[in-house]
Structure formats: C-alpha cells, structure tokens
C-alpha cells in the first residue's frame, strides 16, 4: 500500500511552488528533494546544528523541524533567495566572503539565513548580540571568530546599501 499524499503549495524565494507529498515529508527534504533547492543543508536532522535554517514568513526556523504540509500557504526564503536581485552576493554572503566566515561551507547556508533574519530586527548589533544570534548554529571549521566578524560586517554593508 502506498502512502497517502497531500497537496501542498507555498511561495519559495518569491515563486509559487507546489507538490504532492506524504505528511511526514520534512520541509528540508521537500526543498531539497522535491524542489531541487539543495542550498539548504541537512546536518543533524533533529534541530541541533542549524544548517537547515530557512525563513518562514520572515522568521528563521529549522526546516528539519517542520513538515512541508504544515507550512502550506507559507512564504519560504532559502539561501538561494538571499542574493541581490542582480545575482551578486547579498550583504551577509558578501560579508562571509570578505571576513573568511567559512571554510568547508557546509554550515554556511544556515548561518546566512539566521543572520539575515537577525539583522532585519537588529540592524546595528553589538558583538554580544551577534554571538547570541548565532549560538544555535554549529560550525566545526572556523572557530566562530570570523563568523562574528561577518555578522558585524554584514550589518555595515546593509547600512551602506540603505543609504541613498
């Protein structure tokens, strides 16, 4: 007997996307397997590592701790949706590039999404706030120092972009 499928539709990176999936399909798997958006990485798959973080209706959430069917009708942004409109690196991506905020890069999509949402609410963070913001994301390469620098640099780049 095959598993019952449920229709879901949502906006992903500005485009309407839909599919028919079993209820147990995690949002992370829906993005990667059904929509072929493999920028979202899956590390621990139980909410500890933060690599799969995406934005749901503007807020950062773990895509491995959501079922695709539960976010039916929602608005999702993945790391693929965080570049500038002309295709150049977005502010957080640019900051990671400049500050050497990544090495192997596996955890990076989760950091980029988490930090993007954080900077929306805290456009001028202190170093302490930057540390708190990334406390839920694991990186085994960098030792975090350059990621903290990247958060602060990303805030600068964003503020420069906002100026006329």
């Amino acid at each position: 007997m095959s598993e019952k499928h449920i229709d879901v539709s949502m906006t992903v990176n500005g485009f309407p996307r839909s599919g028919s999936v079993p209820a147990r399909r995690l949002l992370s798997d829906f993005l990667r397997h059904d929509l072929q958006l493999t920028g979202t990485h899956v590390g621990c798959e139980h909410g500890v590592c933060g690599a799969c973080t995406v934005l749901l209706n503007g807020k950062a959430v773990r895509s491995c701790l959501l079922f695709a069917v539960s976010v039916d009708g929602g608005e999702i942004v993945t790391v693929e949706g965080l570049a500038n409109q002309d295709g150049s690196l977005g502010p957080v991506q640019q900051a990671f590039h400049e500050c050497h905020g990544l090495q192997c890069g596996f955890c990076t999509p989760g950091f980029i999404t988490t930090i993007s949402a954080f900077l929306d609410e805290h456009p001028n963070p202190t170093e302490g706030q930057a540390r708190e913001a990334i406390a839920g994301n694991l990186c085994r390469c960098t030792g975090y120092q350059n990621i903290i620098k990247s958060v602060l640099r990303a805030a600068e780049i964003r503020n420069e972009m906002m100026q006329p």
């Binding site: 909410g47 933060g50 973080t53 749901l56 807020k59 950062a60 959430v61 773990r62 701790l65 959501l66 988490t114 954080f118 708190e132 913001a133 406390a135 839920g136």
Partner: peptide, 8 residues
C-alpha cells in the same frame, strides 16, 4: 533553546 527554535 535558541531564538530560531523559539520562533516556532
């Protein structure tokens, strides 16, 4: 937990 978990 962390802010990201607290969002949901």
């Amino acid at each position: 937990a962390h802010p990201v978990i607290r969002n949901r």
